[in-house]
Computed example of a mutant assay.
Amino acid sequence: MSYKHLDTSKNYLITGAAGFIGYYLSKKLLEQGCKVIGIDNINDYYDVNLKYARLELLKPFEKFTFIKGDISDKVMMMKIFEEYKPHIVVNLAAQAGVRYSIENPDVYIQSNIIGFFNILEACRFYPVDHLVYASSSSVYGSNKKVPFEESDFVDHPVSLYAATKKSNELMAHTYSHLYNIPATGLRFFTVYGPMGRPDMAYFGFTNKYFAGKPIKIFNNGDFKHDLYRDFTYVDDIVEGIERLLSNPPVEEIPNKVFNIGNNSPERLMTFIETLENTLSKATGRKVVFDKVFEPMKPGDVPATYASTDLLQEAVGFKPSISIEEGLQKFADWYVEYYGME
């Protein structure tokens, strides 16, 4: 196994740069001296203050250029490619969230389908060395076979969000085939960490606790058949992406898809207990959530579990940060950021 290390002489275009993963990836590349062009529309799907706080932390880097804009604006995207001539594009801009896609389907088509199409078109007219884009573990739907492997059948998405991500994989494959665009899709598995997304369960549970409200757990209160999730700490995700950037697919059709997950699913209740423990340490007092159990929501799946063999073969990396370590970093950050001591 040999893979090329990060090329710091290249221009990196990162969409969704004010987002959770986009921020961490931009920061890591900038710290190594790369030139990064970040795009984000700073939408208000969750607290925009957090997005601005992330951008503030990127401002001091001289090689960082930020453009406020929407990837669904094709004219703007073409101009950006023409002006900055990115060598490597990482598309992390997307409307996220499974449940939100049931209430607001339009924004998913706008961002995840039209926006991604615009990026593919831009890569077609301004050829790039590598297009890396976010897919999602949600493409596996309610597959029963675990761990999920990239070769599994994924034609039965159970949410519109999942359907848009599966569409991205198909569109990227077509463009790789027609225009020889090297493209790699990444199926992320439940990413968490400091400065994360407030719409994610761990963040929401923490908000609810400090607001004195009960948390809702959508598993029917059924501990025998609890939900399992492959929780992946953000640093592991970023490490996986970074290793792939200079290693585009070399197959006849230069197109690949990889899982990036922790490969060790945790029961949701274990995750919640660990969050209680880490918040107890961060605050110096015993934290116990008031729990209300409800039926599973439409679009939710009982288990996510990543096989990471392909990623390991390609770039010699496997996520390994435990939920104890990862959630402690989140809890410490949260308590400090929101002044909850």
Rank of each mutant, 00 (worst) to 15 (best):
Y161G: 02
A134H: 14
S138T: 15
K145N: 13
V158G: 00
H156T: 11
S136F: 08
V132H: 07
D129Q: 14
F125S: 02
S138N: 13
P157I: 07
K145H: 11
V139E: 11
Y161A: 07
V158K: 00
S159E: 02
S151W: 14
E149M: 05
D152R: 09
E150M: 01
K144F: 11
K145L: 13
P147L: 04
K145D: 14
V128C: 13
L160R: 02
A134E: 13
D152Y: 10
S137Y: 14
E150W: 01
S137N: 14
Y126C: 12
P147W: 09
S142C: 11
V154S: 00
P157T: 03
Y133N: 09
S138Q: 11
Y140K: 03
Y161V: 08
V158A: 00
G141W: 08
H130V: 10
S151C: 13
V139R: 07
S151V: 12
V146K: 13
S138G: 08
S138C: 11
P127A: 06
R124Q: 14
F125G: 00
Y133S: 10
P147C: 06
P127R: 08
S142Y: 09
V139G: 06
S151Q: 13
Y161K: 03
F148N: 02
P127G: 04
S142I: 14
P127N: 08
S137C: 15
K145Q: 14
P157S: 03
G141C: 10
E149D: 13
Y140E: 05
D155K: 09
D155Y: 12
L131F: 14
L160H: 03
K145Y: 06
S138H: 12
Y126S: 09
D155S: 08
D155C: 02
Y140R: 01
A134F: 13
S135I: 09
Y126T: 05
E150D: 02
E150C: 00
F125A: 02
L131Q: 05
H156W: 02
K145W: 07
V158L: 04
H130L: 11
D155F: 09
V154E: 00
V158Y: 01
F153I: 14
H130M: 08
D152H: 14
S136E: 06
P157Q: 05
D155P: 03
S142Q: 15
P127W: 06
H130K: 09
L160I: 01
V128T: 15
Y126R: 04
P127E: 03
S137E: 13
F148R: 00
S159N: 04
S138A: 15
D129V: 08
S151E: 14
S135W: 12
F148D: 01
V139P: 05
P127Q: 12
S138I: 06
D155W: 04
V158Q: 01
P127I: 05
F148M: 03
Y126N: 12
E150F: 00
V158M: 00
D152M: 10
S151T: 15
N143K: 15
H156A: 09
S136Y: 11
D155T: 06
S137I: 13
K145F: 07
F125V: 03
S151F: 10
L131Y: 12
V139L: 01
V139D: 07
P127F: 06
L160P: 00
L131D: 05
D129P: 03
S135L: 10
Y126P: 05
P127Y: 07
V154W: 00
P157C: 04
P127V: 07
